[in-house]
């Protein structure tokens, strides 16, 4: 499902001493089935932006179209919208409330007014997607570890079978292994369900690994928008916005500064390794010929 955002403005607490222009003239088109990473430091407007996409915030001006539904129109069906656009908040495990995992995951489908059979099917499917065994179904979510709780919460959104999945910092607070696991699962889910996925993060490494397109937000506007390689080749601009670039990008930058001609769009370890090996092999060849 495609998303079209035009001239979006959002002013927070208008007319009060705390007034803040949180989004300034944002224009974006996200195609059906894209996997987009949104980065920006705290207060850059990225969380405000995604809350507009399922109607939790109403823009001060501008329009948002999701699929063929203009959600910023008066009388737009919010219930329908929220079934299409699933939003997983930061630290979603803090919203669990039911006594069993099954009940918690079925909360969304139940609100949609589905039949018991349908709910049952969806809960099982969602648990499967996030890698939770069905034997946990009747356990209390509060007995689980932090990482497992988070998966229950994500399953609660997936059970609504959204066409667009938005995740706010899904890996926040997890250790490297937990982070890797959740990112892999989201990636697999994306490939299998063919959803449009938007994924907010302040970790460049995480975004670099998962997304096909990166949108960088700064001071309420879209600052950069492109393929990861294009974004990371602008290390200077990123750093001026208070963002970190992957260490590999910094290494390539440093080597280029020292006069070694490397492709500035390299940002993964694998690519860096392959390129360096190739260059060394070429050099050996050349030297061989010279002798």
């Amino acid at each position: 499902m495609a998303i079209e955002i035009q001239g979006l403005n959002y002013v927070y607490m208008e007319g009060s001493p705390f007034e803040k222009h949180a989004l300034k003239d944002v224009n974006l088109t996200i195609g059906d089935g894209e996997f987009v990473g949104i980065i920006g430091h705290t207060g850059s407007g990225k969380s405000t932006l995604i809350q507009h996409l399922n109607g939790l915030l109403q823009p001060s001006s501008g329009t948002i179209k999701i699929g063929d539904m203009v959600i910023t129109e008066k009388g737009a069906d919010m219930k329908k919208l929220r079934q299409k656009v699933g939003l997983v908040f930061q630290y979603p495990e803090h919203q669990l409330f039911e006594e069993t995992i099954y009940k918690d995951i079925s909360y969304g489908p139940k609100n949609m007014g589905l039949s018991q059979d349908e709910i049952d099917e969806r809960v099982r499917e969602a648990m499967n997607y996030v890698g939770l065994s069905e034997k946990y179904m009747n356990r209390s979510p509060f007995e689980l570890s932090g990482g497992q709780k988070r998966r229950v919460a994500i399953a609660g959104v997936l059970a609504m079978r959204p066409d667009v999945l938005i995740l706010d910092e899904p890996a926040a607070g997890l250790d490297p292994a937990g982070r890797e696991e959740i990112l892999t699962q989201i990636r697999a889910l994306y490939l299998e369900r063919k959803m449009t996925v938007l994924f907010v993060s302040h970790s460049m490494e995480d975004v670099a690994r998962a997304a096909g397109r990166i949108i960088v937000m700064n001071q309420g506007s879209v600052a950069l928008d492109g393929k990861p390689a294009e974004i990371f080749s602008q290390a200077e601009a990123l750093r001026s916005m208070g963002l970190d670039v992957p260490q590999i990008t910094r290494l390539i930058d440093e080597l280029r500064r020292r006069g070694i001609s490397l492709d500035s769009s390299i940002y993964t370890i694998e690519k860096a390794k392959a390129t360096i090996q190739m260059m060394l092999a070429n050099k050996m060849n050349r030297e061989g010929k010279e002798c």
Binding site: Q51, N54, L56, K79, R82, Q83, G86, L87, F89, P92, H94, Q95, Y107, G108, N111, M112, G156, V157, M160
Partner: peptide, 13 residues
């Protein structure tokens, strides 16, 4: 506010 929004996103009314 955060919890309310999250539950609304799951269809709470």
């Amino acid at each position: 506010d955060k919890i309310m929004k999250a539950q609304k996103a799951r269809g709470a009314d």
